[in-house]
Each structure stands twice: as C-alpha cells, then as structure tokens.
C-alpha cells in the first residue's frame, strides 16, 4: 500500500517525477468528456458533457434538441444508437448534424395490423446494455420508458462505468444529470395561408445536478440558413413571411 501523502510539497515532488498526473490536465479532461456543438457553448462550460451523464431533453423542441446534443460527439467519430424512437426523422437528424454513417436504431416489432408490440423490461434491459457497451451515445426515446426504475438505475450505472452518454426524450425514468428544457419555441416564416416554416427560435434553460443556477439561452433551432446558433441580442422579426403574389 502506498504511503499516505500528508505534505503538499511531497505531492508536488511525486508529480514532478511523473508518478501523479494532475487531474485537471487538458488531455485527461478531454478523455473524460464528449464535445457538444458550439451552439451550447454559452450554456455548458467547456462545451462538453462528462462521459457517463444522462442528458434529458424536454419541451417543445425536445427531439431536435436531443439530435443537436448527439450531433457533437457524432461529428467527432462517435456512433449513435437510437432506441425506442421509431418515428425519428432522418432528414432532420442529418440537418441537426448527426452523421448518418454512424447511426443505428433499435425498434420494437410491428405486427401485421401495424400495432407495435413493445419490448418488456427484460428485453429492453439487455438491448440497452448492449447499446451502452457498443456505442458512445445512446438516444433513448419514449419506447424505453417501459423499463422499470431498478433496471434504469442498473443501466445508468453501466453507462457511468463504460463512459458513454445517454440522451433521453420522453423517458424520465432514467433521470437526468443535465436537463435541457425548451420552454417556448416560435416558428418564423409561416403566415396565414402563405409562407413556409423556415426557422425556429427556442428559449432553452439548463438545469442539473452540477449546475448551481439555471442558465438560459435564446437560440435558433435551426436558423433560416439551417445553422444551429445563439440568437443575436437584438432580434426583431428577422424573417418576413412570403407574400402570395399570384
């Protein structure tokens, strides 16, 4: 057993000899986190999420928000598994920045009449454990709400051991270390019988276990040019609805 270090100079000495690495070193921190898209920089310190975290997305733009959270690691080479979300729009996923080459979905079987035959707690437990073992990001949809709280706790423990990240939409059973809430979203571009939806302005709020105070951000999910970015401080009707001319 190593001798207990009581004197701070002793510790510095050990560090000097390369026996102790400083926990705060940048590379070590990078290894323990997964990067997010730059749009979240004002909300999340270092713009990265600790591995092993559960990120909950709720509110009006929850699905797009979850895709945007998953997009950061995905663009850095991580694989994303989607579970219990059979109706995910793939075009929207690609637009949010998720790399489709590294996307895999697990869905529940549908019988001949079109009715979904949900997996039970045990099957989801095995499937999600396999997802957590194999993929860096697991997107948990409403279908996974079937699992019992005990199974969910076991899966979260596994997530922390493996160092993956879970993003949940409509699956509060997994809890949340970080919780993105979209309190209000307004669409721009749609008129009364004319125009087309072009951009969405969302008011995000971040709460969580390690977030002492709620943080707020106004952002475009997405902006008119398709980008996800924070709103400029002074914004007034940036987009004029198209007028019918003919």
């Amino acid at each position: 057993m190593a001798a207990r270090v009581t004197n701070p100079t002793q510790l510095a000495d050990l560090a000097g000899r390369g026996l102790v690495t400083r926990a705060g070193s940048a590379t070590a921190a990078q290894a323990r986190t997964l990067p997010l898209l730059p749009v979240f920089a004002p909300l999340v310190p270092q713009c990265a999420v600790q591995r092993g975290s559960v990120v909950g997305c709720v509110g009006a733009a929850a699905v797009t928000l979850a895709l945007a959270v998953a997009a950061g690691p995905s663009q850095q080479g991580a694989w994303v598994a989607v579970a219990g979300m059979p109706s995910l729009g793939l075009a929207a996923a690609a637009e949010a920045g998720v790399v489709l080459e590294r996307l895999v979905a697990v869905t529940e079987p549908v019988d001949a009449d079109g009715a979904v035959q949900p997996f039970d707690d045990e099957v989801w437990g095995d499937l999600l454990a396999a997802c957590i073992d194999g993929f860096d990001v697991v997107l948990l949809g409403p279908g996974t709400q079937q699992v019992r709280p005990a199974t969910a706790r076991r899966l979260v423990a596994r997530l922390q051991a493996r160092g993956a990240m879970a993003v949940t939409v409509g699956a509060p059973v997994f809890g949340a270390d970080l919780r993105f809430e979209c309190a209000a979203a307004t669409w721009v571009g749609l008129g009364d019988g004319h125009g087309v939806a072009q951009a969405r302005r969302a008011q995000l709020a971040l709460t969580g276990r390690r977030v002492p105070q709620e943080r707020r951000l106004d952002c475009w999910l997405p902006a008119v040019d398709g980008q996800l970015r924070a709103c400029e401080p002074t914004v007034d009707g940036m987009v004029t609805p198209l007028r019918r001319t003919g």
Binding site: S87, G89, A91, A92, E95, V196, R200, P222, G226
Partner: peptide
C-alpha cells in the same frame, strides 16, 4: 419536396 428544416418526427404510417 419541402425545404429544410425537416420534421424531426415522421409518422409512418
């Protein structure tokens, strides 16, 4: 086809 943004939830059927 409709321009972006695309719907994030697609009901099929």
């Amino acid at each position: 086809s409709l321009p972006a943004p695309s719907p994030a939830v697609v009901h099929a059927p």
